[in-house]
Every structure is written in C-alpha cells, then in structure tokens.
C-alpha cells in the first residue's frame, strides 16, 4: 500500500504541471486549449531524444521551448487568422502528431536503455533521499513551476493576461493588446504541459506517440477536483489546487487499479463523466433552482385560489 501511495504521489506531481497549464489557459484565459495532448508528447519526445543523446538536463528546457512553439502556433491561428480557439488547438494537435514522430526519428516509441536520465543522476547525487529521490526531484521541479507561475501572474504582463480572460471589454479599452496577452498565456501554458511531458518521459525511460491521448480531460478532472477541495478564489489557491488535484486523481486511480471497484477499462468513461458533470454543475444548479421557484410560485397561487 505504501508503495502504491508513493507511486501515486510521484505520478501526481509529474503530471501536475498540466492542470497548472489548464489553470492558466482554461480558468484564467477562458480558452479550452486542445494543443495539450500533442504538446505533452512533444515535451516527452524532445526530452527523451536529448537524454538519449547524453543531455538529460538540457532536455528539460528544450522540451519547454518546444512547448512554447506549439502554444505559439495555436495562438497565432486564433489571434491573427481568426480560427476559432478550440479548432486552432485541434489543428495544432493534429499536426503535432507528425512533428512528434519526426522528433522521435520516425518511430512510434523511443526507449532509454542504460542511458542516464535526470532521475538516475539525481539519485546518485542525493543519496540521502534513498528511495524517495525521484519524488524529491519531481516535487522540487513542480513546486518551482507553480511558484514561477504565481509570480508571473502578479507582474504587469501577468495581470494583463488575467484581465484579458476576465473582462475583454475592459481590455479593449485599456492599453492591453489582447492578441499579445493571449499569445503569451498560451505559450506559457504549453511550456508547462511540455515540462510535464519532459519529466514523465525521462521518469518512465520511454516515450510513446500515443501517450498523450486524452490527457487534457484528465488534467481538467484534476483541476476540478483540486478546486472543489481548495477553492479557486486567488491565483495562489488555484495553483495549489491544480497540484493537489493531480495527486488526488492519481491516488484515486491507484485505488481503483488495486481494488478494481470499477473495471480499469471504465476509468476513462468515469473521468469523462466527472469532468462533464463538474463543468455542467452551475447550469444544472440554476435550472433546478428555477424549477423550484416555479413550483413554489404555483403552489402559492393555488393556495390563494383555494381561499
């Protein structure tokens, strides 16, 4: 059991930058960024390729830079060429499949055999951490990413990005260029997604062309779980919620895997239902309130008639 929790924690922290990215693109900028799936694989592919070439450390910033490019393409399509934002992400994501294959040397998976990765190097250096060195490293990187994002969102540029998603009317009349802020926001978000891919690739010593499928929905579920527990009022809370949600999701996943309460093949459907319900919740709640009000009003008027 302890092993399961440990693995769940590690995976939760490894994948946490993606809900963090969606916190920026989906919550703050109000854009459902479909680039995420392909961008995750891109990050993993770049990082593994660099690690295979003997540069595991360089692989991380290179993966993030690739993520920035992917985000830039999506942003360019929607801010300059009028492509609807969801479609822009889907198009980029589709094209990334080929790009990812190219990065992986036209092979559908790449394995790191007997190659040093971030994790093997760190385990040797930080021998005091023992079996927890992986977790320590991942926790540090993810915490750094979250802290960086929180700091960034308090700068002039960050505040402008937040205002862009919050009140487009205000932004149009102020000296913020919404095209620019949307672009920067999507670039930063995708660099975070790629960072997660980069870590996962080296952690698992492999990258598969299909490893990103559906990751945007899972990350959304993580974000929603975290927000339900911690709230989303401030940037700090939102960022922490993304990480906590990611860990909780992996723990739930591990429990399901272990106990088989739900057949493991059913997990994706369950995740989809959770996400759909969570996003639909405010609408459902308003509808039920309205029906209740209508019912109460009709009860009252019939009471009057009786008198």
């Amino acid at each position: 059991m302890a092993y399961i929790i440990k693995t769940a924690l590690e995976l939760g922290l490894l994948y946490a930058p993606i809900p963090l990215a969606l916190f920026l693109s989906f919550r703050i900028l109000n854009i459902a960024d479909m680039t995420t799936d392909g961008c995750f694989v891109l990050g993993a592919a770049v990082s593994v390729t660099w690690a295979a070439a003997g540069h595991p450390f360089l692989g991380i910033p290179m993966a993030m830079a690739a993520g920035v490019l992917a985000g830039f393409v999506t942003a360019l399509l929607q801010t300059r060429f009028g492509v609807p934002s969801i479609l822009a992400g889907i198009i980029t994501n589709f094209g990334l499949y080929t790009v990812n294959l190219m990065v992986m040397g036209w092979s559908s998976n790449v394995n790191l055999l007997k190659t040093d990765t971030l994790f093997t190097i760190f385990a040797r250096r930080a021998s005091f951490a023992g079996a927890y060195s992986d977790m320590l490293l991942v926790a540090c990187i993810t915490a750094l990413a979250a802290a960086g994002l929180i700091w960034f969102l308090s700068t002039r540029l960050g505040l402008s990005i937040r205002a862009t998603g919050d009140n487009p009317d205000m932004v149009r009349a102020s000296s913020v260029n919404p095209r620019f802020t949307t672009t920067v926001g999507l670039c930063v978000a995708n660099s975070l997604t790629a960072l997660s891919g980069a870590m996962v690739g080296q952690y698992q010593n492999t990258v598969d062309i299909n490893s990103g499928t559906g990751i945007v929905v899972i990350a959304l579920a993580c974000l929603i779980i975290g927000e339900t527990i911690l709230g989303k009022k401030t940037v700090f809370k939102g960022a922490v919620a993304a990480i906590v949600g990611s860990v909780i999701y992996r723990v739930i996943y591990a429990i399901v895997l272990k106990t088989r309460i739900v057949p493991i093949q059913g997990l994706k459907l369950m995740t989809a239902l959770v996400v759909a319900f969570a996003i639909a919740f405010p609408t459902i709640r308003d509808y039920l309130r309205f029906m209740h009000k209508k019912h109460m009003a009709s009860v009252k008027s019939s009471e009057k008639e009786d008198k």
Binding site: L159, R162, A163, D166, N167, D169, M170, A173
Partner: peptide, 12 residues
C-alpha cells in the same frame, strides 16, 4: 463607460 462592469476585472 456608462456600464460599471466595463471598466474593471471582476475576479481580480
């Protein structure tokens, strides 16, 4: 503007 909602970002 006339509309008080136009000039400020509500969730900030």
């Amino acid at each position: 503007f006339q509309d008080p909602l136009k000039g400020t970002a509500p969730s900030m």
